[in-house]
Design a protein around this nucleic acid. Structure first.
Lengths: 153, 153
DNA sequence: ATTAATGCAAACGGTTTGCACTACT
DNA sequence: AGTAGTGCAAACCGTTTGCATTAAT
């Protein structure tokens, strides 16, 4: 029941933004924001719930998801879906790295900054402005491809 | 309880492929294959279940999902996740081009052969053998990126 | 005769909802 | 005081699992 340190930028203005719209700043929302503030890249809904509950047991799943709805409307987070189908909330524009994802075995490899840059350049001319940190290449790794070819190719 | 027309290519060889591995060709699997054969692009698990049951009420969800597992191991289908997080099964290799997918607006653009080739080369050294036709780049299109930046950047 | 595959029903996991209650403003 | 937000518990939906049974080889 202690009040924690003040929020770092760009989160500091959130309480005000909420109140401007007639919404409220609550301890539970504060906890959600604290977890989001220390998240780089993305976090799944379930993981966020778990991390919030470590900080504050009064935070319950429904509150987290309802808060995420509000935050998404404010444009603070954006959701998509991860490789496993769970909701994934992307926070800010952090230093996240892209990844190489095998659609068959689900393994992932990191994409290096230069690689991501090269890809971004490839598509820049046609107006698709990729951010290196948000690039995911879905394909099939060598092992899986060989197995598939043997079977059905 | 009628036997339907023979399977079109490349499905015709499936029964044999299964039996080669000690697996079996069953009426339920046939129904699943019939639906997949008339699917272009992709289909969700739930939708596949539903369409199978229209053809044959004895087909039950668990059978469909178990069959999909087998088919995926054979490389006949590949699964990913749609915008709503549900499993999405991609069928065959009739997709001769990869695509550029905006994670925010879900729009898609085609990737040209040369572009796909350039990407494949980028990752070949590390053993990730992408096939041009199976490359999907997930990112954010210019419009969506600008919108996100304005809101929170 | 073997044993892969099925149907059933129940479990699962992440997410959503209805409702009475709490607490920000 | 007014109403946004909460906790709870139950519903939800697509998918998965255990198990006894069926049927393809």
């Amino acid at each position: 029941v202690t009040v924690s340190a003040s929020l770092r930028e760009p989160w500091a203005s959130l309480p005000g933004q909420l109140r401007e719209r007639g919404l409220r700043w609550t301890p539970q929302r504060r906890t959600v924001i604290e977890v989001l503030a220390e998240t780089r890249g993305h976090i799944t809904g379930a993981e966020l719930v778990e991390r919030c509950r470590v900080l504050d047991l009064t935070v319950v799943p429904s509150t987290v998801y309802r808060t995420l709805d509000v935050l998404e409307q404010l444009g603070v987070v954006r959701h998509g879906h991860g490789a496993d189908g769970r909701q994934e909330f992307h926070v800010g524009s952090e230093t996240d790295h892209g990844h190489l994802h095998c659609a068959t075995c689900e393994n992932q490899w990191e994409i290096t900054e230069p690689q991501a840059g090269a890809i971004a350049e490839l598509f820049a001319p046609q107006g698709f402005a990729l951010e290196a940190s948000h690039v995911t290449i879905v394909g099939q790794c060598r092992t899986c491809r060989e197995r598939a070819t043997r079977a059905f190719g």
